[in-house]
Amino acid sequence: MRDFIDNAPQLRTTSSNELSGRRLRWHAAVLFSVALALFVADLRGWLQPAHSLVEQLLAPSTMRLTHLHDATRDAWQGLFAWQQVQQENIALRQQISQLQAELVLREQAVVENARLREQLAIQEQRPWSLIGAEVTVRTPDVARRVITISRGAADGLVAGMAVVGQTGTGPVALIGVVETVNQRTASVLLTTDFGNRLSVRVVHQGESTLALMQGQWQRGSRLRLEQAEQSSLLQKGAIVVSAGLTGKLAFDLPLASVPEGIPIGVIDAAANDGNDRYADVRPYADPDQVRYVWVILSRDE
């Protein structure tokens, strides 16, 4: 009897713990079920209007906070910058940028001339119709390399359009492709994401080679060229531009909107192993650093 009396509080605690445990399991089961139901519903596209509405509502806040973040980062970096060196650095970078831009255009022009095509079109260095957009959300987690921009279907955006940007004083270059479009916002899958594959043209010393480019962030790198034509070797320093093959071949795919000739980057390291041709590419514009981007709405013929 005494044992029972002594153990009574313990029995009550055990019973209370069992009750809490059951409640917790029930709670977890409900929450997991709701999350799973949301996931399936969104996968089937039933929640797209809600997605679009909430993103539109949150866009002003995210844009302001992203600007605040950028301003803070700039101020922090400014504390450690040596002003004179910085100015010299900027001047040199501008010079390099101009030279790089000229080099890209010259290499492309050599190829175009060699094939006797569109000689007049070369004078129009960038025959694109563009629309500018703020970056409102940058890559937020380890799953995907994606950014959200402040333009959407209302501005004429559709999935598959090319997005270009500039970091530092480098040339304007491809940073991603529009993936999903809401009324006022759009998400852009960055070129560095593993899911991003594009046909590209490698231009070097008057020759051009077609290849496939794929993002490599999930594999610890940036961009990689594969499946290059076997007729020529890939070389370090060669320039990589978009090939626009999907559009040329008139495939009814979103990527048909990506025009040819958009600068992407330069080959950092190349390997020509038997019939295999592959290379690592250093992008001209770092997609993680861009603050303002331009979407190529159309190519002016």
Partner: peptide
């Protein structure tokens, strides 16, 4: 769910 809305991921992904 808030992260899913902010990052254009499928709703429920981050929650799960």
């Amino acid at each position: 769910v808030a992260l899913d809305f902010l990052t254009a991921m499928r709703l429920g992904s981050h929650a799960l």
